[in-house]
Design a protein around this nucleic acid. Structure first.
Lengths: 167, 167
DNA sequence: GGCTTTCACTTGCCGTGTCAAGTAGTCTGA
DNA sequence: TCAGACTACTTGACACGGCAAGTGAAAGCC
């Protein structure tokens, strides 16, 4: 917003930025592609199913799911409609609050996550961690947190998308 | 693909993965939001204009632009139609090859990039580099390259989106 | 020179996501 | 106790991007 000369990136920053930009494009694409190919499911859909599978009772309110998956409530409503159509999820009004609706993972939904999870984690390992040293993994975490702090000063991290379905 | 126990993430990996996942979601969103807010333009659109502004003659073939911006040709066709509607770009058949069409940045398009660039770089600095030490910038570059190598073994990096428009 | 193939886009159709408006249930204060 | 505000979604209209089919120009082939 200042009227002075913009702070252009220096050479080191430029190289890092090019690499980061490419990762920002390629990694989500690749992850999406694996899930689509091996399980016929999008990454967002997987995330919702996966998170629900790790939740006590395998159920949660729509707004709670939307927050953890970082999607708008209206978006989640469409996602839930899709998952419901596939038989992986059921929506019922919350008995404790008539305004809220609970999304419940069905047995078929549970099976879907259990089937999809190993392939997904394997892909994460292959694309990311197999190429990094243990030191770099720690560096990545630190860098990630610092960037997040820049993006969202009061940030809260959501659950991983590549954890084993807990029972 | 193996029938054995999947390689679940260990604790360090999990922490790094959570941070990385969050960056993958939040950073593009934030960058898009800044451009939309301050210049009323999407990130892809900006990327195309920006890259064109750094190109000799401020013109290029559609397929060339599509490759650098990592978008499909059909997608670029829509983007170009949008930019043309705004008067920032003009499409003309390539005199050397009747099949190809050249996208040329107009004067208004050039002005648009020049106006948008400083704010965009400033946002990149603020969100990313202001939070990193010089050592972390170098680590980020190295990590980025290694991950890219996992995602796309024969990877080629495109130009930065946050460089000064060259004349 | 004609015929087929390939290339460089463009376009129609469709699924996904966004924004704004709508609906229904719950709370709050006078 | 009931009008108004608020909460928790849902839905309609629309923009965007993907895929496959279409179009027109160049290249190869004989």
């Amino acid at each position: 917003m200042s009227a002075t000369e913009p702070r252009w990136l220096d050479e080191e920053q430029t190289k890092a930025w090019i690499a980061l930009s490419a990762v920002l494009v390629e990694l989500p694409t690749a992850l999406d592609a694996q899930l689509q190919r091996d399980s016929g499911i999008s990454h967002v859909d997987y995330q919702v199913l996966s998170w629900l599978s790790m939740t006590p009772g395998r159920a949660a309110r729509m707004s709670q799911i939307a927050e953890m998956a970082k999607v708008s409530l209206s978006h989640l409503s469409r996602i839930a409609a899709r998952l419901e159509r596939q038989g992986w999820l059921r929506r019922t009004p919350d008995p404790h609050d008539g305004r809220a609706t609970l999304a419940v993972l069905t047995e078929a939904g549970w099976d879907k996550v259990v089937a999809a999870a190993p392939g997904h984690v394997e892909e994460v390992q292959r694309l990311v961690f197999d190429n990094l040293t243990p030191a770099q993994v720690r560096q990545l975490e630190s860098i990630g947190h610092r960037v997040l702090n820049g993006v969202r000063p009061g940030f809260s991290l959501r659950l991983p998308t590549a954890s084993p379905p807990a029972d």
